Deep mutational scan, measured.
Amino acid sequence: QTTIQVRVPYRVVGLVVGPKGATIKRIQQRTHTYIVTPGRDKEPVFAVTGMPENVDRAREEIEAHITL
Protein backbone atom coordinates (compact mmCIF):
# COMPACT_ATOMS: atom_id res chain seq x y z
CA GLN A 1 0.00 0.00 0.00
CA THR A 2 1.16 3.50 -0.75
CA THR A 3 -0.34 6.97 -0.33
CA ILE A 4 0.17 9.88 -2.70
CA GLN A 5 -1.01 13.48 -2.65
CA VAL A 6 -2.82 14.71 -5.76
CA ARG A 7 -3.00 18.51 -5.85
CA VAL A 8 -5.75 20.11 -7.95
CA PRO A 9 -6.86 23.70 -8.56
CA TYR A 10 -9.50 24.87 -6.04
CA ARG A 11 -12.03 25.35 -8.83
CA VAL A 12 -12.07 21.66 -9.77
CA VAL A 13 -12.36 20.10 -6.29
CA GLY A 14 -16.17 20.07 -6.64
CA LEU A 15 -15.92 18.54 -10.11
CA VAL A 16 -13.66 15.75 -8.90
CA VAL A 17 -15.83 15.03 -5.85
CA GLY A 18 -19.09 15.21 -7.82
CA PRO A 19 -22.67 15.46 -6.54
CA LYS A 20 -22.82 13.98 -3.02
CA GLY A 21 -19.35 12.50 -3.60
CA ALA A 22 -20.54 10.32 -6.49
CA THR A 23 -17.58 11.00 -8.79
CA ILE A 24 -14.87 10.41 -6.20
CA LYS A 25 -16.68 7.24 -5.02
CA ARG A 26 -16.75 5.98 -8.60
CA ILE A 27 -13.01 6.66 -8.98
CA GLN A 28 -12.35 4.78 -5.71
CA GLN A 29 -14.43 1.78 -6.83
CA ARG A 30 -12.90 1.66 -10.32
CA THR A 31 -9.32 1.95 -9.07
CA HIS A 32 -9.64 0.01 -5.77
CA THR A 33 -8.22 2.94 -3.79
CA TYR A 34 -9.20 4.95 -0.73
CA ILE A 35 -9.31 8.70 -1.41
CA VAL A 36 -9.51 11.39 1.26
CA THR A 37 -11.15 14.58 -0.03
CA PRO A 38 -9.71 17.93 1.06
CA GLY A 39 -11.81 19.97 3.50
CA ARG A 40 -13.27 23.30 2.39
CA ASP A 41 -10.63 25.41 4.14
CA LYS A 42 -7.72 23.11 3.38
CA GLU A 43 -5.23 22.91 0.53
CA PRO A 44 -6.91 21.31 -2.53
CA VAL A 45 -5.04 18.01 -2.18
CA PHE A 46 -6.57 14.53 -2.41
CA ALA A 47 -4.80 11.75 -0.47
CA VAL A 48 -4.98 8.53 -2.49
CA THR A 49 -4.13 5.21 -0.81
CA GLY A 50 -3.85 1.78 -2.42
CA MET A 51 -1.54 -0.47 -4.38
CA PRO A 52 0.97 1.57 -6.43
CA GLU A 53 -0.54 0.75 -9.84
CA ASN A 54 -4.06 1.54 -8.57
CA VAL A 55 -2.90 4.81 -7.02
CA ASP A 56 -1.42 5.82 -10.39
CA ARG A 57 -4.71 5.03 -12.13
CA ALA A 58 -6.67 7.05 -9.57
CA ARG A 59 -4.27 10.00 -10.00
CA GLU A 60 -4.81 9.86 -13.78
CA GLU A 61 -8.60 9.83 -13.31
CA ILE A 62 -8.48 12.78 -10.91
CA GLU A 63 -6.18 14.69 -13.25
CA ALA A 64 -8.51 13.99 -16.19
CA HIS A 65 -11.11 16.18 -14.44
CA ILE A 66 -8.68 19.10 -14.31
CA THR A 67 -8.57 19.35 -18.10
CA LEU A 68 -12.36 19.46 -18.55
Rank of each mutant, 00 (worst) to 15 (best):
T37M: 10
V16T: 01
V16A: 05
G21P: 07
Q29L: 11
Q29R: 12
V48A: 08
N54C: 14
R57Q: 11
V36S: 11
V36T: 13
G18E: 08
D41R: 05
G50M: 05
V16C: 07
I66T: 10
H65E: 15
M51A: 12
E61T: 03
R11E: 15
I35P: 02
K42A: 15
V48Q: 00
F46V: 03
V45M: 06
I62F: 06
P9A: 06
V8W: 04
T49R: 08
G18V: 07
E53G: 10
E43L: 02
V13I: 14
E60I: 12
R30G: 06
T3R: 05
D41C: 08
A58V: 06
R59I: 09
R40E: 12
V48Y: 00
I66G: 08
R11C: 09
E43R: 04
R7F: 10
T23C: 04
V17P: 07
I24Q: 03
P19Y: 13
K25R: 13
T3L: 07
V12C: 14
T2L: 12
Q28E: 09
D56R: 15
K42S: 14
G18D: 01
E53P: 07
E60T: 09
D41K: 03
Q1P: 10
H32Q: 13
P9I: 02
V8M: 05
V55Y: 05
L68V: 12
E53C: 12
R11Y: 11
A64S: 12
D56F: 09
L15R: 14
T37Q: 14
A64E: 13
G21E: 06
D56I: 14
E43F: 01
I35V: 03
V45S: 06
P19G: 02
V6D: 11
V36D: 11
T49Q: 07
H32Y: 02
V13G: 04
A58M: 03
R30W: 00
R11P: 13
P19R: 15
P44I: 01
K20I: 00
V48G: 01
H32C: 10
P9H: 00
K20T: 03
R11N: 15
M51F: 11
V17A: 07
Q1F: 15
I62N: 08
V16Q: 07
P38S: 05
H65Q: 13
V55G: 02
E61Q: 09
R59T: 02
K20Q: 09
I66P: 01
R40N: 09
R59L: 06
P19M: 11
I24V: 07
Q29C: 08
G18F: 02
T49P: 00
R59F: 05
Y34F: 10
E60K: 14
Q5E: 13
G14T: 02
N54H: 04
P19I: 05
I27D: 10
R26H: 07
T33P: 03
G21W: 02
A64M: 05
